[in-house]
């Protein structure tokens, strides 16, 4: 599918309308995947892929430029932030004098999500990294 900015064809109305509904759903679904990932299928990686798909879809329906603006950060900054978040979650356990990456869990349960802990933060880091990675590649290819 050609990006809309290359030729002056009118972007498909169906795609535009569908995107308006699909993007929020995809983003919500990606967060859902992220939060249930520890013990059930899901997690940061698939979550990041789905979120990446949402932005890619937006980019196809509108323009890459718009998608980049929607994302706010350049994708590679996201990769960097994600990596730092992931490694930071691992370092957290050092305050408790446990080896690197030992899971530290909260004592109280958070409603809906359940127990929160450093593996969750790690997953968030993975989520951001994968999102950045996917969009780095997709945006680059769409602009070719």
């Amino acid at each position: 599918m050609k990006p809309a900015e290359k030729d002056n064809t009118i972007p498909s109305l169906i795609l535009l309308t569908a995107t308006r509904y699909l993007v929020p759903v995809l983003l919500l679904f990606s967060l859902f995947l992220l939060t249930r990932g520890h013990n059930e299928p899901g997690g940061g990686f698939v979550g990041g892929l789905v979120a990446g798909a949402a932005f890619a879809l937006y980019g196809i329906a509108h323009t890459v430029h718009d998608a980049r603006r929607l994302l706010r950060f350049p994708p590679r900054v996201l990769i960097g932030i994600g990596l730092l978040v992931a490694v930071g979650s691992g370092l957290f356990s050092l305050f408790y004098r446990r080896p690197f990456m030992t899971g530290i869990w909260s004592v109280v349960e958070v409603p809906v999500i359940g127990k929160v802990g450093t593996p969750g933060i790690f997953d968030i880091g993975v989520f951001i990294t994968v999102l950045g990675m996917v969009l780095q590649i997709v945006f680059e290819l769409m602009e070719e």
Binding site: P74, R76, V77, I79, G80, L83, F100
Partner: peptide, 24 residues
């Protein structure tokens, strides 16, 4: 002591991630 063994991995990792943030 445990962290020391991992520092040769973590130091390049963290600096690389920071370098991604300061791309230009």
């Amino acid at each position: 002591m445990g962290l020391l063994l991992l520092l040769p991995l973590l130091i390049p990792f963290v600096t690389a991630a920071l370098a991604l943030l300061t791309w230009r």
